[in-house]
Design a protein around this nucleic acid. Structure first.
Lengths: 196, 196
DNA sequence: TATTATAGTGAACGAAAGGTCACTTGTCAA
DNA sequence: TTGACAAGTGACCTTTCGTTCACTATAATA
């Protein structure tokens, strides 16, 4: 039968938790969305909390794989246009990849309740982006594409506004187009300001 | 007896909702925190949802009073040092005023569930700050304190990173000191970059 | 003082929650 | 073919939830 039910449960949990939060979700609904009856879930996870913890495990692992290691850095841009293009590619992925969107929403909703969610939220929303762009900006400064400055500060100044617009898209999907345009405008403004 | 019980209920609701969210809160606990028995609440509000709506009414009204009108603008700074000082004053208030902190947390937790919370969240986290600093930067440009540039873009570029650090303080209060230092460093960097 | 509206109590209710368990079904190895 | 085990079912349990209601205490009003 469903051999991958355990994985499917996590996917369904991510879907529902990201909409209603952990407390707002009940297992009957979760099971039903998989075509099971609620007691079926307990063959795979011993409790609602166990599902939550497994989901967090997966989110943490996924983050580590995808964003944690330096080798997943995008190629360092060679021109202002490439810099803007790279930014837009990254933003488009992060805004349209359902898995990532749901992960951000869950972390937003559970950051005050669960310590691991708290920690991962800070990585997703702040420090992860800053670290990533610190590396990129360091390279760009070495290549003479960016004015010499504190790369960490620039990374923070660049990623935080973009992160705010990503959050806006999560909150108000209707404004996605507008937000993407604003990201692009901001990116151009940034590279005009700090580019050499 | 407690003539202001209705107000006290809203205060208690803000406290608990901001920690556990709407779904995670139960009326027994809410009543108990006021020294009442649960049924006492229903003499003042007809349902849990009514409490939520009244709380949102108050948050919306409070936001309008405090941040909505242009007359509450801080005096436009006359020097880079004053600009940094003004920023630090505002950030310290918004980070340490319990009412404001709890309001941000509630909006964070309920932004995907309630349309009014969604709208107010966007104001609190993004557009409100941008509008406010657009005015300030316009004046500063007129005074020759800031390089001529798109004031709205600068306002966005300035407030979004600060907003991210405020969120960090909400999420991880232990990092407050560090975050405040980072706000100050960012503020100085900003005024050095864009100041004339 | 008698009356009446208001605030608060405590027991109870139905619904929904998370979870258990004896049971059936389907799959595959021995 | 059979035995064993994992996957799924449906009835049921306990707890907790939001809410109701008959009642009491209080304090202001007529």
């Amino acid at each position: 039968m469903g051999k991958d039910t355990k994985e499917r449960i996590l996917a369904a949990a991510l879907e529902i938790f990201s909409q209603k939060g952990y407390e707002g979700t009940n297992i009957r609904e979760l099971s039903a969305s998989l075509g099971l009856v609620k007691s079926g879930i307990y063959k795979h996870y011993e409790s609602k909390e166990a599902i939550w913890n497994a989901l967090l495990d997966r989110m943490i692992a996924y983050y580590g794989e995808r964003f944690g290691s330096p080798e997943h850095l995008p190629p360092v841009p060679e021109s202002p246009e490439e810099f803007v293009a790279m930014t837009m590619r990254m933003v488009n992925v992060t805004i349209h990849d359902e898995q990532i969107v749901k992960t951000r929403k869950v972390l937003t909703l559970e950051q005050f309740r669960d310590d691991r969610a708290r920690e991962l939220a800070t990585k997703h929303f702040l420090t992860g982006l800053t670290k990533m762009f610190t590396r990129i900006f360091t390279s760009m400064m070495a290549k003479g594409l960016l004015r010499k400055d504190n790369p960490e500060m620039l990374a923070f100044a660049y990623t935080a506004p973009i992160s705010a617009l990503i959050h806006l898209c999560d909150r108000e999907p209707d404004k996605t187009e507008e937000a993407i345009a604003q990201v692009e405008a901001f990116s151009r403004h940034f590279i005009k300001t700090y580019g050499v």
